[in-house]
Amino acid sequence: MSMQSITLGHYIPGNSLLHQLDPRVKLISLFILIVALFLIKTFNGFFFYIFFIGALFISSRLPWKYFFRGLKPVLFIVLFTLILHFLFTKGGEVYWRLGALTVEEMGVFMGTFMTLRLILLVVTTLLITLTTSPVAFADGIEHLLRPLRPLGVPGYEIAMMMTIALRFIPTLMEESDKIRKAQMARGADFETGNIFRRARNMIPLLVPLFVSAFRRADDLAVAMEARCYRGGEQRTKMRELKAHFLDYVGIFTVSGICLAIFFTGI
């Protein structure tokens, strides 16, 4: 595995409208859109929603394959939901019968409906995560958590932790690669055996990796202290987030869509 090929999160760099929006706006919009998804009661509502998301997707110029790739992990849950509803939700006309098993009108309706909702949930989230860099995400979360500071929510610290994690993921990847090779040179076997055996064979890799990670953490803490880090309280930022005209347009559009869905009852 080459180290440069690792993509963090799912971020695909670009400069489309979605890429340029303020991360706070994107996080809030994501939340509103998810609420809207759960308010939708008819298929017409879904068409309306798909039209909106589709337009955003095309404007973001993201390759299609990333969506299919992102949907793969939830495929099982989607199918499971579909089958459960088909078989066990009763009501309306009976479409199909085999012994005690029946597939009825309500089941087909609910199954399709729920499946569509799940898929759209994942697609909406992907659309946001694919267009937002992890660092911007951390910044956005920090800002959004600021009002909760008096309640004891450590927004700065969460953002700092995310940044440091992002900073050290490639370093630790490189290191695990090195340890792997060193252990293989000593005869360790990471490739054969069943899943339990393989898991156990990972121990000679994980132990040194953890020890080194703790040592790094210790060094880093000293280095941060030496550079006057003393918690997030009165820090400033080199790049302050600033909402522009388009950001306001974005948030109004999304809120408008949500309200429209709620009041028209589609």
Partner: peptide
Amino acid sequence: VFQNPDNQIVATTVEEDVAFGLENLAVPP
């Protein structure tokens, strides 16, 4: 400045890392 170059870099880009100390000192952006 410490011995291990990796373990003293905090941020995910070069310029953000240089800014780290200044941000701690609450210097204006």
